[in-house]
């Protein structure tokens, strides 16, 4: 599969400060790529280089096959960019705002009304078309900004913190829109601090810290790589000692911890750190039952994006 975004050894320095330090990355066409990292990690700088707003100190970046250095105009034609702020023009209606940016993307005047209407319907703002932009709520402005990035039907959407500062409803609406856009064939490259969003919608994740890419890939692969041990919660009615002995005999079990034990009764809860695939997890349950141990609860701890993030990063800020 051809990567639609390709970054090679990208470096950006501001005087003595290195914002991006040899970052290399590929994003496949059709992916929803979450670009995650602490503040000052170099996310926005990387995005500004990808959107041709900034030239790199060294290295190269390609979007849709075009070099951001040599073919900036072609790159601009291929991308829709939404920065982490919303630029407002006074005295402009929602319709005029879209029409103006459509004209800036050289969409013929005759085609713009239909495109604008479609975009407003897509982002559910058709009923606000004649309202002033400044009168919209933040969530609506963000949806309008998303519509603006789609005016010229770009292949790639580069979105800097699209859900930042939004209330939960607006955040979910934006998230759903991104999924819808991915379904329409757009590649979405977005930065965020909201790790739940990454876990929810991203097909791929890149974690950046101190200007370097510290982890990249599918979220499940990353979880397996960064956290080889799975955590299994087991609740027993009785036979704690036997259960511990039986689990210790299983290959791949790293640690068995008793987290809860009811005084005077046999009921106990264990956490088992285990390295193995799904079949092996199933085999552990079968093994415990075969040993006559009364298991009343057996579940795997679902590790979230926050844990992956904390494992991948070290808290360094460039």
């Amino acid at each position: 599969m051809t990567p639609i975004i390709e970054i090679k050894d990208l470096v950006k320095t501001y005087g003595k400060l290195t914002a991006v330090s040899g970052l290399s990355l590929q994003v496949q066409s059709g992916a929803i790529f979450g670009f995650v990292g602490p503040n000052g990690a170099g996310k926005t700088t990387t995005m500004r280089i990808l959107t041709t707003l900034m030239a790199p100190t060294s290295g190269e970046a390609y979007v849709a096959g075009y070099s951001v250095i040599k073919n900036p105009r072609d790159v601009r034609r291929a991308i829709g960019y939404m920065p982490d702020f919303f630029g407002v023009y006074d005295d402009m209606t929602v319709w005029e705002y879209l029409d103006f940016f459509g004209a800036c993307y050289e969409i013929p005047e005759a085609k713009r009304p239909a495109i604008n209407q479609d975009l407003l319907e897509l982002v559910d703002l058709a009923h606000r078309r004649d309202d002033r932009v400044e009168a919209l709520s933040r969530g609506m402005k963000q949806r309008l900004a998303l519509a603006r990035t789609l005016a010229h039907d770009p292949q790639v959407l580069i979105l800097d913190e699209p859900a930042s500062g939004l209330d939960p409803r607006a955040r979910i609406e934006i998230r759903e829109l991104l999924v819808e856009l991915a379904r329409m064939g757009k590649t979405i490259f977005f930065s965020t601090h909201i790790l739940a969003d990454v876990a929810e919608i991203c097909t791929d994740v890149g974690i950046v810290e101190a200007g370097k890419l510290v982890a990249v890939g599918k979220l499940e692969d990353m979880q397996r790589r960064l956290m080889p041990h799975r955590r299994i919660h087991v609740t027993l009615l009785d036979k704690l000692t036997e259960a511990r002995a039986a689990l210790a005999a299983v290959e791949g079990v790293a640690e068995v911890e008793v987290v809860e034990q009811v005084e005077g009764a046999g009921r106990a809860r264990l956490v088992v750190e285990y390295a193995g695939d799904d079949a092996a997890v199933s085999a552990i349950l079968a093994w415990l039952v075969a040993q006559g141990i009364p298991v009343v609860h057996f579940s795997e701890d679902v590790r979230d994006m926050e844990e992956v993030f904390m494992r991948a990063t070290k808290g360094i800020v460039s």
């Binding site: 105009r73 601009r76 919303f86 630029g87 800036c104 993307y105």
Partner: peptide, 13 residues
């Protein structure tokens, strides 16, 4: 100042 300059710069204008 309105933060619209960068939006314009990423268009084909």
């Amino acid at each position: 100042e309105r933060q619209t300059y960068e939006l314009l710069r990423t268009t084909l204008l």
